[in-house]
């Protein structure tokens, strides 16, 4: 029973991660890409917490790591949105296909 439970959790987090990959590959809006990256972070966090619960590691080790991931994801979102707003001010667009200033 708990083996089935464990594998279901891993497959669900895998599906969520792949949805995030799909979003990063197909979105044209830079904010949409940032949201898809958040989905991938959360899928990884689910995996870590599930392994902490089901694989009987040292208590709470698998909970410390998601805390750092959440902290860094918040920092990443703040800097990423600031960059997107700065780009928007310059080229009046958030479409990643229009950001070609550094393209050779």
């Amino acid at each position: 029973m708990s083996n089935l439970y464990f594998y279901t959790v891993i497959i669900v987090s895998l599906v969520l991660f792949l949805i995030g990959v799909y979003g990063v590959l197909t979105r044209r809006n830079a904010i949409g890409i940032l949201m898809a990256i958040e989905i991938m972070f959360n899928a990884a966090n689910i995996n870590l917490v599930a392994f902490n619960k089901f694989m009987h590691l040292e208590a709470s080790i698998g909970i410390i790591f998601p805390i750092f991931i959440i902290t860094l994801a918040a920092a990443e979102t703040a800097v990423g949105l600031a960059l997107i707003l700065a780009i928007y001010r310059n080229i009046k667009s958030v479409n990643v296909e229009k950001m070609e200033l550094l393209k050779w």
């Binding site: 708990s2 083996n3 439970y5 464990f6 594998y7 902490n52 619960k53 089901f54 694989m55 009987h56 208590a59 709470s60 080790i61 909970i63 410390i64 805390i67």
Partner: peptide, 19 residues
């Protein structure tokens, strides 16, 4: 996988101690 029942009453205390 087997269920970890080592954490009665939540994890806030052990997380704070580890941090």
């Amino acid at each position: 996988g087997f269920e970890n029942t080592l954490l009665p009453g939540g994890t806030a205390k052990s997380v704070g101690w580890l941090l």
